[in-house]
């Protein structure tokens, strides 16, 4: 089993609904976020292109945050999901430094926090909150090992890319272009 997410940049309008839904679902304090929107603009007027991406922890196969964690708080669970055990975390921030995606933040309560792929929902057969709320349905989640999963179907006939492939982290968020 390998959980992953695909983001259709052709459909994303950058509304940030994924961000608010994550904040209310996971009680993320105001001023912090586990997911966010990136907009890149290319070209010169009037030949312009925009790419809008909903971004979050890449739940990397080769995750520098897990390797550098001195206490083992950052760990990988079944399905390849990278999690942080809050009461084992000493808040040293090494993982924050090591992440090429800037996906982690220091929670005011003293631990490091980030996207969990909403495992508390996934365990109950639901989708992550961001996926369920997205008005454009541009987020696809599921098991890459299951050829019928939403994410496998989304990746099948489309071109896609990952962010910072040169970092060698083997990220698991795929951006359909």
């Amino acid at each position: 089993m390998r959980y992953a997410m695909a983001v259709d940049t052709r459909k994303c309008v950058g509304c940030s609904d994924c961000v608010v839904a994550c904040q209310t679902e996971n009680n993320v304090p105001i001023g912090f976020c586990r997911d966010w929107i990136t907009e890149t603009v290319d070209g010169t007027y009037p030949n312009v292109e925009i790419e809008l991406r909903s971004e979050r922890c890449n739940h990397c196969d080769n995750s520098p945050c897990v390797r550098c964690c001195p206490t083992g708080a950052s760990h990988i669970v079944e399905g390849g999901v990278v999690l942080v055990t809050h009461d084992e975390c000493i808040g040293c921030g090494a993982c924050i430094q090591s992440c090429p995606y800037d996906a982690r933040y220091s929670h005011p309560d003293g631990y490091v926090d980030k996207c969990t792929f909403c495992m508390h929902r996934v365990e109950k057969g639901q989708k992550p909150a961001c996926v369920d709320v997205c008005p454009t349905k541009c987020l696809y989640f599921g098991d890459l090992d299951d050829p019928n999963s939403d994410v496998s179907n989304a990746l099948r006939n489309r071109k896609y890319k990952v962010l910072a492939p040169e970092a060698g982290t083997k990220p698991q968020i795929y951006f359909l272009t």
Binding site: V19, T24, V133, K137
Partner: peptide
């Protein structure tokens, strides 16, 4: 704690926008 769209509603089809969320 949160507000979530009603699946049966044609205005939102279960998906509120960021303001509704």
């Amino acid at each position: 704690v949160k507000v979530i769209g009603n699946d049966e509603d044609p205005h939102c089809n279960g998906r509120l926008c960021p303001r509704g969320t």
